[in-house]
Amino acid sequence: MSGGPEVVLVGPMGVGKSTVGELLAERLGCAFRDTDGDIVTAQGRTIADIFVDEGEAHFRALEKAAVAAAIAEHEGVLALGGGAILDADTRALLAGHHVVYLSMDVEEAAKRTGLNAARPLLAVNPRKQWRELMDARRHLYTEVARVVVATDGRTPDEVAQAVLDALELKQA
């Protein structure tokens, strides 16, 4: 694999992409980058505020650009926002990379995120909306992923180790 991120983490909101990504970067001796963080920094406001002020389509355009830039520039561990894989061009950019789909079931999602209102796509009936989001996205996560690592009942350390093992990557 030439250039680009060492590992790309995809999966639903609250699955632990940032937490696991930081642990992986530490173990691999490289930098961690989160495209949601890039967007918040560039826009100077939260993702929830972008959704409310300009809508999902505007956010997705920002996200597509942030992901393309990160894949081109970043050589460490990269975490993508939960919906980044909805874009066909983004999925194409992920081809050939070590993409890991971190999965979890709805009960685990409820425990971790509280399925709270700070998540703009889950504002009304959180469990039902989470299930519907996953039904719409699961096949896309699977399509782009080289490996799937279940996070249910595992600590972030255990998940990070499972990712390293699955990709057969050596710690720094």
Score class of each variant (00 low, 15 high):
residue 1 M to S: 15
residue 1 M to K: 09
residue 7 V to K: 03
residue 12 P to E: 12
residue 12 P to C: 08
residue 16 G to R: 01
residue 16 G to Q: 02
residue 17 K to S: 02
residue 21 G to I: 04
residue 23 L to H: 03
residue 24 L to F: 06
residue 25 A to R: 03
residue 27 R to M: 07
residue 28 L to H: 00
residue 29 G to N: 07
residue 34 D to V: 07
residue 35 T to E: 01
residue 35 T to G: 03
residue 35 T to Y: 01
residue 36 D to Y: 01
residue 37 G to Q: 09
residue 37 G to S: 01
residue 42 A to V: 05
residue 42 A to L: 10
residue 47 I to Y: 00
residue 49 D to L: 06
residue 49 D to Y: 02
residue 50 I to F: 07
residue 51 F to V: 03
residue 56 E to I: 08
residue 57 A to G: 11
residue 57 A to Q: 13
residue 58 H to A: 14
residue 58 H to I: 07
residue 59 F to L: 08
residue 60 R to E: 04
residue 61 A to H: 11
residue 62 L to T: 06
residue 62 L to N: 03
residue 65 A to I: 10
residue 66 A to E: 02
residue 67 V to W: 06
residue 67 V to E: 09
residue 70 A to T: 07
residue 71 I to V: 15
residue 74 H to I: 08
residue 75 E to P: 14
residue 76 G to I: 04
residue 77 V to G: 01
residue 80 L to R: 12
residue 84 A to E: 11
residue 84 A to N: 09
residue 85 I to W: 07
residue 85 I to V: 15
residue 88 A to I: 10
residue 91 R to N: 11
residue 91 R to C: 09
residue 96 G to Y: 00
residue 96 G to Q: 06
residue 96 G to E: 05
residue 97 H to D: 02
residue 97 H to C: 00
residue 98 H to M: 05
residue 98 H to T: 05
residue 103 S to P: 04
residue 103 S to Q: 00
residue 104 M to K: 01
residue 105 D to M: 01
residue 108 E to P: 04
residue 112 R to T: 00
residue 114 G to C: 07
residue 115 L to A: 05
residue 116 N to I: 01
residue 116 N to K: 13
residue 120 P to C: 02
residue 121 L to F: 10
residue 122 L to N: 03
residue 122 L to Q: 00
residue 123 A to D: 05
residue 124 V to L: 13
residue 125 N to E: 13
residue 126 P to N: 04
residue 126 P to K: 01
residue 127 R to C: 02
residue 127 R to F: 03
residue 130 W to P: 01
residue 135 D to Q: 15
residue 135 D to V: 10
residue 138 R to W: 12
residue 139 H to W: 12
residue 142 T to H: 13
residue 143 E to L: 11
residue 144 V to F: 14
residue 144 V to E: 03
residue 144 V to C: 10
residue 148 V to D: 12
residue 150 A to W: 04
residue 151 T to A: 05
residue 152 D to N: 13
residue 152 D to S: 09
residue 153 G to V: 07
residue 156 P to G: 01
residue 160 A to P: 07
residue 161 Q to M: 11
residue 163 V to I: 08
residue 165 D to Y: 05
residue 165 D to K: 10
residue 165 D to I: 07
residue 166 A to H: 11
residue 167 L to F: 13
residue 169 L to R: 00
residue 170 K to H: 13
residue 170 K to W: 09
